[in-house]
């Protein structure tokens, strides 16, 4: 769970890097070039399989563990637990499910187009799907952007607990580093979502 999580967190940084190409006012040249590279390069193709494996395992193992956890307390308490715990730590499965829904929407909008499963009128001169135009079309709709922003914030909640939790599970807990891990995790969970959120805001408000 923890190793897969850390792997996915590294992937998010790469994904954000590519998304930020959308901010260049070059008509999508960089972004489409990146999308083209990600869609055709063989090393990326191998990585893509690993990535999907990572996602699927993370979701699968997470679900199995959660079901075991629910089964560990067949009779519930009348008064639900009042113990102080970090607020978001108890809701990982729920934020996780919301992220999964987000992922599916995301696939409908982008990945399935590349596979040709979903029809798409936006084509580049080379006859490939123009992902820049697709992204732009989606982000100029305020409703879509708002949904996107909310979902990204929930992703941030998930990440905030996930980061330090992953290290604790791996056994990395030392008074000398705990502060740093916590700090780094929170910064990560703020900066990455902020980066993603900036893009729809840019399309909506600035451009």
């Amino acid at each position: 769970m923890s190793l897969l999580g850390i792997f996915l967190m590294i992937f998010l940084v790469v994904h954000l890097g590519i998304n930020l190409c959308l901010l260049r006012s070059d008509g999508g040249a960089w972004f489409n070039a990146a999308a083209h590279f990600m869609g055709t390069n063989y090393i990326v193709k191998v990585f893509e399989v690993i990535l999907f494996g990572g996602f699927i395992l993370h979701i699968l193992i997470g679900t199995i563990l959660q079901i075991q956890n629910w089964m560990s307390r067949p009779v519930r308490y009348k008064v639900t637990n009042k113990t102080y715990t970090p607020f978001l730590s108890k809701y990982m499965i729920y934020t996780g499910i919301i992220i999964l829904i987000f992922l599916l929407i995301h696939f409908m909008n982008f990945y399935f187009i590349r596979l040709g499963w979903v029809s798409n009128p936006n084509i580049t001169a080379e006859g490939e799907p123009d992902f820049y135009l697709i992204a732009q079309e989606l982000f100029v709709q305020p409703a879509y952007s708002l949904l996107y922003i909310i979902l990204i914030i929930i992703l941030g909640f998930h990440l905030n607990h996930a980061f330090q939790s992953a290290w604790q599970t791996l056994g990395v807990n030392h008074p000398q580093y705990n502060g740093f891990i916590r700090w780094f995790g929170t910064i990560y969970a703020i900066l990455i979502p902020l980066g993603f959120i900036f893009i729809p805001l840019y399309f909506l408000l600035i451009r």
């Binding site: 563990l65 075991q68 956890n69 089964m71 560990s72 715990t85 607990h161 330090q164």
Partner: peptide
Amino acid sequence: LGFGNCTNTYACEAE
């Protein structure tokens, strides 16, 4: 024995 899995909420430590 059927104990659950740790999700690092740290309620144990708090109590």
